[in-house]
Computed example of a mutant assay.
Amino acid sequence: MKKAIFGGTFDPIHIGHIHIAYEALYNLSLDEVIFMPNGRPPHKRARAVTEEKIRYKMVSQAIKGEKKFSISDFEIKSDSLSYTYNTLMQFNHREPYTQWYFLVGVDSLMTLRQWKNIHIILDNCTLVVFSRTGYAMDDVLKMKKDLEKEYDKEIILLEMSLLDISSTEIKKKISEDKMVNYLLPQGVEEVINQYNLYRNKV
């Protein structure tokens, strides 16, 4: 089996996330993409994040109907900070014969040396990097090559078209009472409205 974990705050999840998941599913011939909403992400402790159960509900709505997409509450049920190395160790322990991939943006690749226990992360998965705006490809390729040499592990750059959408942009539009339904998977806007999210704030 080949499975990928797609972690993120998903606050809110948008069609850019779904696009990435499908590209990974098809390009890597995956059996499953597991969406993993962060519980307490260490890099966002200073930023307000929507309650875990609401973000979980938005992701559940977004992936409804896709048999090869699933959602895990592993990190949001954890009492500790959401460290990637711990998540990957646990999932590898549960399914030792699964080939694991972990989806991250190119921004994460460029700051990977700041992550906790990188060697454990790379021992427990193949890192798959998707594009984001604002990064020169020469710099990305150099970082990929340096990390592969340093840790003796393969890192995959996911060849895909870029949908330049951000959760921050969506929250700003909602706070300005602008339409966002074209940026969100079906059902997500209903959850946003149900909990009155992102009004009068960015």
Rank of each mutant, 00 (worst) to 15 (best):
Q99N: 14
Q114G: 06
E159I: 08
E148C: 04
K67F: 04
G187L: 01
F69M: 07
V49H: 09
M89P: 05
E52K: 15
K145I: 02
Y22A: 03
L157N: 09
C125G: 00
K44M: 11
F91T: 01
Q90M: 11
G105W: 09
E51T: 08
S161K: 13
Y83F: 15
I170L: 07
K142N: 14
V140E: 01
V104M: 11
H17A: 06
D152G: 14
E150W: 03
E190S: 12
D11P: 10
K2L: 09
I118K: 04
V191F: 10
N27T: 08
L112R: 01
Y135V: 11
K201T: 15
T111V: 06
I156D: 00
V33I: 15
L81Y: 13
L184F: 11
E150I: 04
L28D: 11
A136T: 11
S82I: 02
K144F: 01
L141A: 08
R55S: 04
A62G: 11
L163W: 10
L30C: 10
P12R: 04
A46F: 10
K2H: 09
N27Y: 05
D107G: 10
Y26V: 12
Y198D: 05
I63L: 07
E190D: 15
L127R: 00
K149A: 14
G16D: 05
G16T: 07
N27Q: 15
S131N: 14
E52H: 10
K116A: 02
L25I: 05
I13N: 02
V106R: 01
I13C: 10
I13D: 09
L122H: 12
D79G: 13
N117L: 06
I34Q: 10
P37I: 00
K201Y: 06
T87S: 14
A62T: 06
Q90N: 14
Y97P: 00
F69N: 08
K144I: 00
K178P: 06
I174C: 08
K64L: 13
Q186I: 13
V188F: 02
K144M: 04
I15E: 01
F102I: 03
G187D: 14
Y135P: 10
M110N: 11
H93N: 15
M160K: 12
I13S: 05
